[in-house]
């Protein structure tokens, strides 16, 4: 196996992990209480099962009737989020921009809109734009949202090839929450691709030292990541020897 193909494997693994940063793989949330509008609840029911077409159809039927009552900005945000997941990026962008252009919107709605807009720019490989959008998010945003933003900022640094400027403190477990193992793996893979195997080993070892009890990821998810890290580390050792 050539070095190029090993690089491809590491790159593929990294891409796969980046794909997991999708609108539907949000970190664990607290359960919601009952909804006051049934159509909104039905939309969520489809959305959480990744049935985006049915979710959007439900929202559109609601819009053509008397809309969804009593959920503030949530239906709009969810419409933008589902459109993004369904590959309707232009539509999603117009929804988020309309929220951001309205200064009367509460900060929580603006934070969510900036977050999704940043994610959209990230998906379009507009990494500078994504970083700018993420910088608009206030510190009052939810812990889970800020954790995802931190992980995405690390991914942006990797994509822009300036991840070596990140210090090890950027991997703050308390800030990254469930995204910490993913960020650790991605940094390890990035160093391996760059040929810096010592640093790669450092991050892969960090990941392998993580205990299932310390992370709220499912044990299977953590094992899968650790398995990938162990495989990648094996390639690193092999490469150092040849």
């Amino acid at each position: 196996m050539s070095f190029l193909s090993r690089k491809k494997i590491l790159h593929l693994a990294s891409v796969l992990l980046a794909v997991s940063v999708s609108p539907v793989t949000l970190a664990k949330e607290k359960p919601k209480t009952s909804v006051s509008d049934l159509r909104y609840g039905v939309t969520l029911y489809h959305y959480y099962q990744q049935d985006y077409l049915s979710a959007l159809a439900e929202l559109m039927v609601a819009d053509s009737r008397d809309g969804i009552q009593g959920h503030g900005n949530n239906p709009e945000l969810i419409a933008g989020g589902i459109s993004l997941a369904f590959g309707m990026q232009n539509h999603a962008e117009s929804v988020f921009n309309s929220i951001l252009n309205d200064e009367k919107r509460p900060q929580t709605a603006r934070d969510a809109a900036w977050f999704y807009l940043g994610k959209l720019q990230y998906l379009r490989a507009d990494y500078e734009g994504a970083a700018r959008s993420f910088n608009h998010i206030s510190n009052k945003a939810s812990e889970n949202l800020l954790a995802q933003v931190s992980a995405l900022k690390i991914n942006i640094a990797i994509r822009q090839n300036n991840f070596m400027q990140l210090d090890k403190k950027s991997l703050d477990e308390d800030r990254l929450l469930d995204w910490n193992p993913y960020a650790t793996y991605n940094l390890g893979a990035a160093y391996a691709r760059a040929g810096n195997f010592e640093q790669a080993e450092y991050y892969f070892n960090e990941l392998n030292d993580l205990d299932g009890d310390e992370s709220s990821l499912t044990q299977k998810e953590l094992w899968a990541l650790q398995d990938k890290a162990a495989t990648a580390m094996g390639y690193s050792f092999w490469h150092k020897k040849i």
Binding site: Y45, H46, Y48
Partner: peptide, 14 residues
């Protein structure tokens, strides 16, 4: 499991 998780997270089934 997928359906019950969707309900648990706040979804409503028609």
């Amino acid at each position: 499991d997928k359906q019950t998780q969707a309900l648990f997270r706040g979804g409503v089934q028609r």
